[in-house]
């Protein structure tokens, strides 16, 4: 049922800079509906910077970003709010509100953006939390659960409004392998059955091979995209040796492909 051809995110000639230091220069890519899109690259190459521009936290130095045909860069306040309502973001550190329980954290976007009653909101929040395996921790406060659990709760909060696009900043970092693979399965399921688009910053090769439809790889030297395509193709036959190396975990590793 998923229409995979709509373009959900379109970045054209995007330039990201902090002051005068340019991090990314003239980036072009598009993300289609239902795609699991991974942003990859060595540390310090601007992955998180790109993500923060895509969600409108920073104004780009040049170029444009369109989310579902809405111009994010020049959106007025009302349009901006509408875009934000349709995207969910999970930050690297979780960024849960310490003064609220996990359930209240997940319920907050529902309270702000929907007309549902408390019973319904509680049920939804509880279901989202059990999706990430936290059904028994709804009353706990973020400081009372582990870092990995905070991260999972943050994913639940990002999904609270069933957004069309989910941005996840390193979702599986700090999770154990089992939870991490459950999370991968969840991402695939949501992408396939609901057509949710995922934009994920990640380093975890195993997880990338398991979930990614498409990967772009950023490079600090060229300040641009050096590879674009499905992970297996990039690993096996990309013209740039550095890209192949990245997917093979360095020059000296013989792993040909990481299994699902």
């Amino acid at each position: 049922m998923t229409i995979k051809n709509d373009i959900v995110i379109q970045a054209s000639a995007l330039t990201c800079a902090y002051g005068t230091s340019v991090i990314l220069d003239n980036i072009n890519f598009e993300v289609r509906r239902g795609e699991v899109f991974i942003i990859l690259g060595g540390s310090g190459c601007g992955k998180s910077t790109l993500l923060k521009h895509l969600i409108g936290l920073y104004q780009p130095a040049g170029g444009s970003i369109k989310i579902i045909d809405q111009d994010l860069v020049h959106a007025n306040q009302q349009e901006h709010r509408r875009i934000l309502k349709n995207i969910g973001v999970m930050y690297q550190s979780g960024a849960l509100f310490g003064s609220m329980s996990l359930l209240e954290n997940v319920r907050l976007p529902l309270e702000e953006h929907t007309a549902l009653d408390t019973h319904a909101m509680n049920l939804i929040a509880h279901m989202k939390l059990s999706l990430v395996g936290l059904g028994n921790f709804t009353k706990h406060y973020p400081s009372e659960v582990s870092g990995g659990m905070q991260k999972r709760a943050a994913i639940a909060r990002a999904m609270a409004l069933d957004p069309e696009v989910l941005f996840l900043d390193e979702p599986s970092a700090g999770l154990d392998p089992i939870t991490s693979s459950e999370l991968d399965a969840l991402i695939r399921r949501l992408a396939e059955s609901l057509g949710i688009t995922f934009v994920i910053v990640s380093h975890e090769l195993a997880s990338i091979f398991a979930i990614a439809d498409r990967v772009i790889m950023l490079d600090a030297e060229t300040k641009g995209i050096i590879a674009d395509g499905p992970p297996v193709t990039l690993q096996q036959s990309h013209s740039n040796a550095a890209v192949r190396e990245f997917f093979n975990r360095g020059k000296h590793n013989n792993i040909t492909q990481v299994e699902d």
Partner: peptide, 23 residues
């Protein structure tokens, strides 16, 4: 219920799912 959505519903073990009362 269509298959895609049934999968989403099946993620929850409704027999053992106990929504918490408002504390």
């Amino acid at each position: 219920l269509k298959e895609d959505f049934q999968q989403l519903l099946d993620q929850f073990d409704l027999k053992h799912f106990k929504p918490e009362p408002e504390s």
